[in-house]
């Protein structure tokens, strides 16, 4: 009985090793895919929501008006910081790259703005949009830029990446399933002939079962000690 179990194990060893290696490799790939997926998720959460809003001011707004507007905006829960950028400052920051044309252009060409830095990740794109809509109705505001196009594109990209990672993970899972079931079927098919022959020559049920139980116990034990 032990002799038969030993023979069976030796017979199956190649197939077993192959399937174990394949499954390990596949699981490794899937772990990688899931890691990418997880990181992509974090990135979408980090970058997917708008972090910056620029409020363009209409010409002719007084300094007092602008300052009270700035304070009102800073008081919004979504806003971490509101900073007034005068036309001159805007010209300076835009010409910081060394562009002489910009540096010498008349200051009226550059709009005064209030730069809003938003509370990171606490703000959804929808809420920012509604804030922008409300701010735009204020008479001294000419335009509100939420950089929506950019964040939307980024978000779309990352969501796409996440979906691809999900598909990969699913594919790997299917492959693992196919390999395992195929290995089991193959070794079972080989053993079925053995069982058929044993039954044919008058083996009792316990005689047929015995080696399989021993083999199972040995494989299980080997698996546990390996881990």
């Amino acid at each position: 009985m032990f002799e038969r179990a030993r023979k069976g194990l030796r017979q199956q060893l190649g197939t077993q090793m192959m399937s174990v290696a394949t499954v390990a490799l596949a699981l490794f790939c899937m772990a990688g895919a899931l890691l990418v997926l997880e990181n992509a998720g974090a990135m979408v959460r980090r970058w997917g929501a708008p972090v910056k809003v620029t409020v363009f001011l209409a010409e002719g707004a007084t300094v007092d008006q602008v300052d009270s507007l700035r304070r009102a905006l800073a008081a919004l829960p979504e806003v971490e910081e509101a900073r007034y950028v005068s036309a001159a400052e805007a010209r300076q920051s835009l010409s910081a790259g060394g562009d002489r044309t910009v540096a010498t252009a008349p200051v009226e060409l550059f709009p005064a703005t209030i730069e809003l830095r938003l509370v990171p990740s606490a703000v959804s794109a929808e809420r920012v949009a509604s804030v922008a809509l409300r701010v735009r109705r204020i008479p001294m505001v000419s335009e509100v830029e939420t950089y929506r196009g950019f964040t939307e594109r980024l978000r779309g990209l990352l969501v796409g990446g996440r979906a691809a990672a999900g598909v990969i993970a699913l594919g790997v899972l299917l492959c693992v399933f196919a390999v395992v079931s195929n290995t089991v079927r193959m070794s079972l098919a080989a053993r079925l002939r053995e069982i058929e022959v044993l039954r044919l020559v008058g083996a009792t049920r316990s005689y047929i079962r015995g080696p399989f139980l021993i083999e199972g116990a040995m494989l299980g034990g080997a698996g546990r000690s390996w881990r």
Binding site: A190, R193, R199, L200, V201, G202, A203, T204, R205
Partner: peptide, 24 residues
């Protein structure tokens, strides 16, 4: 009974068209 069938089979040799040997 189920338990007796193996003992019946030990008194009967069977040969098939498709051999039914264990190839390995």
């Amino acid at each position: 009974t189920e338990d007796s069938v193996p003992h019946l089979r030990r008194n009967i040799g069977v040969v098939f068209q498709d051999f039914r040997l264990v190839p390995y």
